[in-house]
Design a protein around this nucleic acid. Structure first.
Lengths: 336, 336
DNA sequence: CTGAAAGCGCTTACAG
DNA sequence: CTGAAAGCGCTTACAG
């Protein structure tokens, strides 16, 4: 069943059916009613491929996600879910593409097959080959996260360096002198993952400014690593009284390690960092932390992308969000 | 740039370029080489919409996911990630569609716009309107989970009733006389969510068979609910010595409640259930539980769907997986 | 081994 | 207010 069938049964031309559907040309009320009746009766829906071919746009966005092998964090999940919802709210579909590993074919298919009107990239490296790839092409894209030298590109990000800096100042104000940054995994740092490197920079900068002793450790994205990581910290640097972390997945292990060591938070040890609000609330005690506004970031990304698609010559825009640090119960004065 | 441009530059017809690309007709080696050179030089990729229109298939699968408002569990996440990977391995793209809430437009678009060659449904209710909707149409689909009366449909599922039954027998063998089922949320049960209802049935059946006292509670999908839920259990039924759960999200709260109550697992209280292996391992002590093979289920779903798409007249197939219960450290003899 | 042409199902100037 | 026709970029019988 196609538009011709509808036209025949409604006694009009195919163009009239098309215009009745799109509203791009006025159609007599009676004609429109007849057409809509036939459409409803037959349950007709225009063929998306044909429409895309004729219109030159697919009404679909591409979303490039990290490979399944690497577990998604809560924040990343929030990105995916919200991108899909926000796209749906704009009557756009979302095509998923796993990147990395051996998924280059999939990425290339999305990027070059004109399957999508634009692409959202996440998990951005300071020097990201996918960003470079997209910049060579003409396909509109927006990244959640930004490369080291964003130039005239479109992106939305959270100011990791600034947030970590503020966490450190907060700890300094509470009298802490020796602090540690519990970072994401060694692999991510080695790969040049933006948030991990910017967190390190902000951490060391602020600690130096306040004359604090600053230690940093990488920690795999899983609870077990959080546990062993904290044990290592206690062994190597017993004088450390507070930690800043951006590693959500390690939190349960961290909590267990604190408990095992007989440390009460925040009396004996303070913890803060950049963490999804949901996870910060679940910690015991709830974490004083900068909440990553994942849903907001995803919404902005979709908005920016739609804007860029709609007006290809629009001036590049970006948003660097600076969420506040929510004071909960995991930081206290240094009593040692 | 299109196939005609390639044809012109290679000095052949468009059909020859097409056949060189698809391999559906032999092409002289020299001709093929010339064509491939031009293609490589110009970075040509066929337009996916045009191809889909001409071929009558989109090389895309639809995946209907729960709305973002409802947090995805670890198992569900595993489904999404693996479906995408497995599809990519077959050179298929995945179009996401949020269902439920006010996302009917999105679902209808996927189902009726011929945007996809087939659909994978997850989070199936015993009486699922989406399954009913798809069964009225001609679009191939496979569900992860199955309705109460699956008839001649295609699906893959885990035998929740059987697994929970075995958990109960395991506890009975250890001497437990009063057990509780910590189910998913009241809303999910009310909506007729298959696993929640089948777990209840299996639980009560096995408990009755072994002459045990069986209690059941619904618990929202979040840590805080797990905590309050367990406190309620202790208050209302102090004689309960073991719990079976299928609620992954409640586990951290459950763990905290046990700790708060001064209960040591498994000495004072036993816990088992149906839980993603990763989460079972993270519990302290690691949970004796039936591991939901999420990745395997997703792979089977994609396989079945491809089979159904390839041969629309194929005999319906389904798979009811019966994973073993992994003996870890959270169940012990009833010492009370 | 290759080409000319019809056809997939839409949209949209062009005409009236 | 409406229709006939061209065109989007492919694939694939039909011919040779």
């Amino acid at each position: 069943m196609n538009i011709g069938e509808i036209a025949k049964r409604a006694g009009v031309s195919r163009s009239t059916v098309s215009y009745a559907l799109s509203g791009k040309r006025p159609v007599a009320a009676a004609t429109a009613r007849r057409i809509n009746e036939v459409i409803a009766e037959l349950g007709y829906r225009p063929n998306a491929s044909a429409r895309a071919l004729a219109e030159g746009r697919t009404r679909t966005l591409g979303l490039v996600i990290p490979p399944a092998s690497r577990r998604l964090t809560d924040v990343q999940l929030g990105f995916v879910a919200t991108v899909v919802e926000e796209a749906a709210a704009n009557d756009l579909d979302v095509l998923l593409s796993p990147s990395g590993a051996d998924h280059d074919r999939s990425f290339e298919r999305i990027v070059t097959g004109r399957r999508v009107d634009g692409v959202i990239l996440m998990e951005i490296l300071l020097d990201d080959p996918r960003v470079a790839r997209l910049e060579r092409g003409a396909l509109p894209f927006v990244s959640i996260g930004h490369v080291e030298h964003p130039g005239r590109s479109w992106w939305v990000d959270v100011d990791y360096a600034g947030l970590v800096r503020r966490c450190v100042h907060h700890l300094a104000d509470l009298g802490h002198r020796q602090v540690v940054l519990i970072n994401r995994s060694t692999e991510l740092v080695a790969a040049g993952y933006g948030p991990a490197l910017r967190a390190t920079a902000g951490f060391q900068e602020a600690a130096a400014q306040r004359g604090m002793t600053a230690r940093t450790v990488c920690c795999a994205d899983e609870p077990a690593a959080g546990l062993s990581c904290f044990e290592e910290i206690r062994t190597r640097w017993p004088g450390v009284t507070a930690a800043v972390t951006i590693n959500e997945a390690a939190l349960p292990g961290l909590q267990r390690a604190l408990h095992n060591a007989g440390l009460v938070v925040p009396r004996d040890f303070s913890i803060t960092g950049v963490i999804a609000d949901r996870l910060a609330e679940e910690f015991h005690p709830p974490l004083t932390a900068a909440d990553v506004p994942a849903a907001q970031m995803a919404r902005i990304a979709v908005e920016l992308l739609i804007e860029r698609i709609t007006d290809p010559s629009a001036t590049p825009r970006h948003a660097l969000l600076q969420p506040v640090i929510s004071l909960r119960s995991s930081t206290g004065a240094n009593l040692s």
